[in-house]
Simulated assay, not measured.
Amino acid sequence: MLRPRIQTLYSLPVWRTAHPRLYTRTIRRAPSPCTTTISRRLTTSPRRFNELPNAAQPKQPGPIPASTAAIPPEQAAASDAQAAPNPPQQPKPPRRRRGAILYAAFFLLIGTTLGSLFRITIAPPDLPEPGTPEDEHLLAVIRRKAAALPLVQRLEADPEWTAWDAYSGFDDSQTSDTSDASDAGVAPMRRRREAHLTAGALAGSRGLAYQRVFRNNATGECLNVVYFGGGTAGWPGVVHGGCLATVLDESLARCAILRFPSRTGVTATLELTYKAPTRTEAFYVVRARPASGEAAPGKSDRKAWVEGSVETLDGRTCVLARALFVVPKGIKLAPLTGF
């Protein structure tokens, strides 16, 4: 509780002078309604100056009523607690649990995806061995995807193009004798397909899983739709340059040998220009056509220049090639069929 401010009003005698405006009888100040006015004469006595009038004396606390004194302290505290109003409770801020859950799920999905891609790229799973049930299942899936390609469907329906599977004409009953010292002169029998590089060592879903050849009988151009498996990679996910050179060599040789009357020949020159990376586990088109000036039939029975390329299904060039094939003199080579 604020104590009242004590304001003192002094009455000072003022002597009259010659002019009435230069004096006043008494200097007074109107008291404030919340203050106590004390009137006294001017004095220098410390005792009288410190005295307060009767109206300004502080009141002494009276005796406690008997009814209040008789109440026990516990009951008085309980009644005071009941009488006191409850303080207003501030509303709690809403919890943002939904946003936190969404953020956690989003970052968990990103981390799982990046981790899986990193693991597959750095340490890919083992590829199935050729001839296993897993390999046969993957080969069937790849063939179904190849049959659904628009390019394959268009060439299959065009009568100007002849189609066959690469190396399907190899006679499995034809064998070649090879000596093995560990077998004490016993010549093991190996099939021709298994002895071939692209049809044997690179067979299966992990190698050259699909090769479909199309040839235009009028122009001599050959197209080979190839699927490069995961086992053909040099860098992770990129086809090895040597594998591309092998496929181009055989595809360009097919275009040249089918024009030779002897149906055989060897590679004399092979030039390659790598334009863009070739990805594994994807379909590509290997084109081979006679070079400019070599398209006329019968131009040469022993030499032919062929140009080719490896392209994506949408026409982007990855590798350019140019090769010269010849029929050697003085050496009799067996004709190549069904390749």
Rank of each mutant, 00 (worst) to 15 (best):
T37A: 13
V239M: 04
P63F: 10
L12N: 09
P20S: 07
S262K: 09
L336F: 03
E221N: 08
G169Y: 07
Y167W: 13
C318N: 06
L208Y: 09
N224Y: 00
E221L: 01
T36S: 10
L109W: 06
P61K: 12
P87M: 11
L139R: 11
P87V: 12
P128G: 05
R279P: 00
K92M: 12
V14C: 12
C222A: 14
T132C: 07
L252K: 00
R97V: 14
N54A: 15
T113I: 09
P72C: 07
C34E: 14
T36H: 13
G99E: 09
D172E: 15
W305E: 01
A123H: 11
R29V: 12
D172S: 14
T8V: 13
Q7A: 13
N50V: 06
D177S: 15
H240T: 10
P297A: 09
E74R: 14
R191D: 07
R144Q: 14
L313F: 03
D183L: 15
M189F: 09
Y23H: 14
V326K: 01
T17H: 07
T317G: 03
P88G: 04
V266L: 12
L202T: 03
T17S: 09
P328A: 04
S262C: 10
P72K: 02
V310M: 02
N224S: 11
P4V: 06
V186Y: 10
F107D: 01
A181D: 12
L109N: 05
A321D: 03
D158E: 05
G115M: 07
C34R: 15
L149K: 01
G293P: 06
Q82M: 13
T44H: 07
R21Q: 11
L117R: 14
P335F: 03
G229Y: 05
P53R: 11
V266R: 00
P133H: 06
G230V: 09
A105V: 05
L12G: 07
R263S: 09
C243M: 15
L2M: 11
P328F: 01
E311S: 05
V247L: 14
T43H: 10
T198S: 05
K92R: 14
A140Y: 05
L197P: 08
A245L: 09
Q89G: 03
A195M: 15
L109A: 15
E281T: 13
S79Q: 11
L313T: 08
H19R: 12
L252Y: 01
V327Q: 00
P31G: 08
G204E: 02
G234D: 08
A84K: 12
R191M: 09
A123L: 10
A268T: 02
P290L: 04
G169A: 04
R97K: 12
A83G: 06
A218K: 13
I27M: 08
G293I: 05
G99I: 03
A78Q: 13
Y10K: 03
N224I: 02
A199M: 08
E307Y: 00
R48Q: 12
V225F: 11
Y210E: 11
